[in-house]
Design a protein around this nucleic acid. Structure first.
Lengths: 157, 157
DNA sequence: TAAATTACCATGATATACCATAAATATACA
DNA sequence: TGTATATTTATGGTATATCATGGTAATTTA
């Protein structure tokens, strides 16, 4: 039995004319082993699709429910946005899901999708947008690096 | 029920044309006993590959998850950088992993890999780069410990 | 019944698991 | 202490399984 469930790595797959795309095998293995399902929604801040297991959304819902934080209203609103947008995506026997026109348009994906692991979540980008985003992140993280290095879990790499 | 799990020592192994390389036996023993897997990613600051057990990344994921909120931009950047680059590496019955072209290129490794233990993590260097790095570290340490630097020959330093 | 959606099959490319041998290390024994 | 033997480890080669992807059949739905 596996102990860890992390979406990792960056994988580029083709998207056919029907919006079909193979979910990376590693991702499928996680979903299968958790007995969960994949949920996708439009990222609130970036031109990309965001995905996670249904488990995680459930956890998020519970947290909001149990929270007595006065300032959680913002997060509550954001959560509503996501749940309003999210949709389950089951993959067929060959491991493909069919992304909707709405999602593809938001991420500006035509015939190629880039899956980017984010631990509990993952993102799906167009190659062009991901290239830009990767560069932005690199610059951003380098700026904050000294701060990160003081953290116990901070990578020195 | 082992007490300590530390990657130690420096081991040099061959890398074949397919990127296959034997993980040092001691490293394998740790992974096996933890029931975990090896995860590797490009070092952000050095021309080398970094590795650790999946457990460690899992812990990191949980900490990020708990410390920041679900929608934090900082969290987004961090997770993209770390998990987007990291990849699981399972070794076969003979103890080898297959390093990706991306990792090998970053570390400038051709046919020889140097494994360097770093406790919870380890690094993989090309012989040339490791030689330089070792020298750099030596100089750095000496700067910070002038007392030790009374001897002119730093052979045993 | 036409269109759209979903499930299944086929195939080439790639990655992975396995086998055999060589080298290195540890162990046993004289 | 030195030599022989056993055991673990490293490495080259190859068979096998997996994966991504194009195509098609079955099913739904409008």
């Amino acid at each position: 039995m596996r102990k860890t469930f992390l979406f990792m790595d960056t994988v580029t797959n083709k998207v056919d004319s029907k919006g079909r795309v193979s979910l990376p095998a590693d991702y499928r293995a996680i979903v299968k082993e958790l007995g969960s399902e994949i949920v996708c929604y439009r990222s609130l801040v970036s031109p990309c699709i965001e995905g996670c297991t249904e488990d995680l959304l459930e956890k998020l819902a519970s947290e909001i429910e149990d929270s007595n934080d006065f300032f959680s209203q913002t997060q509550d609103d954001l959560t509503n946005l996501i749940f309003g947008d999210a949709k389950r995506f089951t993959f067929d026997s060959t491991g493909r899901i069919v992304l909707s026109e709405k999602l593809l348009k938001h991420a500006q994906i035509k015939d190629t999708a880039v899956f980017v692991g984010k631990g509990r979540k993952f993102q799906i980008w167009s190659p062009q947008n991901w290239e830009k985003e990767e560069e932005r992140i690199r610059v951003e993280v380098m700026k904050k690096r000294p701060v990160l290095n003081t953290r116990k879990t901070g990578e020195n790499a």
